[in-house]
Amino acid sequence: MADTLLRPRRPRTLRPRPRRRALSPAARTAVVGALLAVVVLAYLFAFVRGSFDYALHRRLTMLGAMVVAGFAQSVATVLFQSVTRNRVLTPSIMGLDSVYVLVQTALVVVWGGRVLAATDGLAKVLVQTLVMVAFATVLFRWLFTARWGNLNVLLLVGVTLGMAFDSLATFLQRVLSPTDYDLLSLRLFARMNAVDDASLPLALGACVLAGLFVARRVHRLDVLQLGRDVATNLGLDHRRELTTVLVVVSVLIALSTALVGPMTFFGFIAATVARQLVGSERHVHLLPMAFLFGTLLLVGSQFVLEHVFSASGMLTVVLDVVGGGLFLVLLLRKGRL
């Protein structure tokens, strides 16, 4: 008995608690997709007052616009960040929104404010998209493929051209009459409730084609974001792939801006949060998550603003304020672009 008491006890081995397995990227994407389906149903069928057919038609049109904007802005931002290998950049701050503002202002200066309503339709969306795509393609190709071109040069030239276009548009707006200026001001903010029905099928079709094109190149995008030297050593034609991705980015941003108006920081919010949610840098997971979360953010925010705060027209203003704050926070945390 005494020997037993004096014998040192062996320390108990603590078994490590089994860690909970985190959800896979596919499962996380499925959860966000399910939330989006619930929010879409609530947006379409909840709080219907008056004619159900009229309300459903109006909400379907706005839903289509939000789907186009959510896909175009989020996917384009992810692609642009992968190309530039930078997580705080967005293609909307490189001058595309300024081109849209300048084109709208020039139309009003030359033909008056009534031209905005008279030219609404598919042709106007196509022309604006082509102008913005031509500008962006020339700028991105010139700066990224030149021997001296790099990210810093692209940023400086893009911001400088954007400021120049903004200054020119502001000067032209000074000579407008108050009535024409008021009509123009309505077009310089993104509006989901003023989308032309005839333009939606084209926009949705373009998004589907762009999605299929990008889906076939997801593995090349994974290599492309490793940088020029690594991508070239792995057998990828870096210049051709870079130009192709920039053209797709230009088309998506131009289409979204021409359809609903400028949305400077929305794509940045969608891409940033999607990276945190999906937990992967592979584009096969990141791109669907960015699209689903971006659309969820638009539809959910519109539902809350419309039925809780009675401020349906404040969606893009709120998103730009939140996105600008998030951009500054990430920029200050990193300390560099």
Rank of each mutant, 00 (worst) to 15 (best):
D3R: 14
D3V: 11
T4K: 11
T4L: 15
L6I: 15
L14K: 07
R19I: 11
R19A: 15
R19V: 14
A22S: 13
V31E: 07
V32N: 05
V32H: 01
A42G: 15
F47P: 06
V48R: 14
V48Y: 03
G50H: 09
S51E: 11
L56E: 01
L60K: 02
A72Y: 07
Q73P: 00
V78S: 10
F80D: 04
F80K: 05
V83E: 10
T84A: 13
L89R: 08
T90A: 15
L96A: 04
Y100C: 03
V101E: 01
L102G: 00
Q104R: 10
A118F: 04
G121E: 07
L126V: 15
L126F: 11
V127C: 03
V131Y: 00
A136V: 02
V138D: 04
L139Q: 08
F144H: 10
A146W: 07
W148Q: 13
G149I: 05
G149M: 03
N150K: 07
L151D: 03
N152E: 14
N152V: 15
L156I: 15
V159Y: 09
T160M: 15
A164V: 15
A169Y: 07
F171N: 09
M192K: 00
A194N: 12
V195H: 03
V195C: 08
V195W: 02
P201C: 11
A203F: 08
L204T: 08
L204G: 04
G205N: 01
V208I: 13
L209I: 14
A215F: 12
H219F: 15
R220I: 10
L221W: 09
L221S: 09
Q225C: 12
D229M: 09
T232K: 10
N233F: 12
V245L: 07
S250L: 06
S250E: 00
I253S: 01
A258W: 09
A258R: 06
A258H: 04
P262K: 05
T264M: 10
F265T: 06
A270S: 14
A271E: 09
V273L: 11
A274L: 04
V278S: 00
G279L: 07
R282I: 01
V284P: 00
P288H: 08
M289I: 05
F291C: 13
L292V: 14
G294N: 08
L296I: 05
L298E: 09
L298Y: 04
G300D: 10
S301A: 14
Q302N: 14
V304G: 06
L305E: 01
S310F: 14
A311M: 12
S312A: 15
S312I: 06
T316E: 08
V318C: 13
V318L: 15
L319D: 03
L319I: 12
D320W: 00
D320F: 01
L330C: 02
K334Y: 09
R336L: 11
